[in-house]
């Protein structure tokens, strides 16, 4: 099988999985879920990394790749941390000491 047909299967099954994964979501979790899924969509770090690694000595490609990696990582790290911050507030005990 060549890459294309494999990739199309992967695309199809991935989409179906995504549709099935979240059925009923309590409104409380809408924001964290959106934020978490948003962090996952930063998975383009893989594309950026691949670009940098395969760029060899092409300086322009290295720079584009690096900027792209920066943007994606901003999304990933920021996204997961912000989601964690939100979700930590739902666990009552640990947030006692906080409050401004």
């Amino acid at each position: 099988m060549n890459f294309l047909s494999e990739a199309l299967w992967v695309l199809l099954l991935g989409s179906l999985l995504g549709f099935e994964l979240i059925g009923k979501v309590p409104p409380t979790l809408h924001t964290p879920l959106m934020s978490g899924a948003n962090a996952i969509s930063g998975i383009t770090i893989l594309a950026a990394l691949t670009l940098i690694i395969k760029a060899a000595d092409n300086q322009a490609l290295l720079i584009i790749g690096s900027i792209s990696l920066g943007f994606a990582l901003f999304n990933v790290i920021g996204g997961f941390l912000v989601t964690d911050r939100m979700l930590r507030m739902f666990s009552r005990k640990s947030s006692k000491k906080k409050g401004n």
Binding site: S41, T44, A47
Partner: peptide, 30 residues
């Protein structure tokens, strides 16, 4: 998510395609 999946086709990464597709579909449901 869709953009990530498309980027997965560009750099030929199946992992990227699955993850992008999942987020794209889940985001649509949400």
């Amino acid at each position: 998510g869709v953009a990530a999946a498309a980027a997965g086709f560009v750099v030929r990464s199946q992992l990227l395609i699955v993850a992008g597709a999942m987020v794209g579909a889940a985001g649509l449901i949400l």
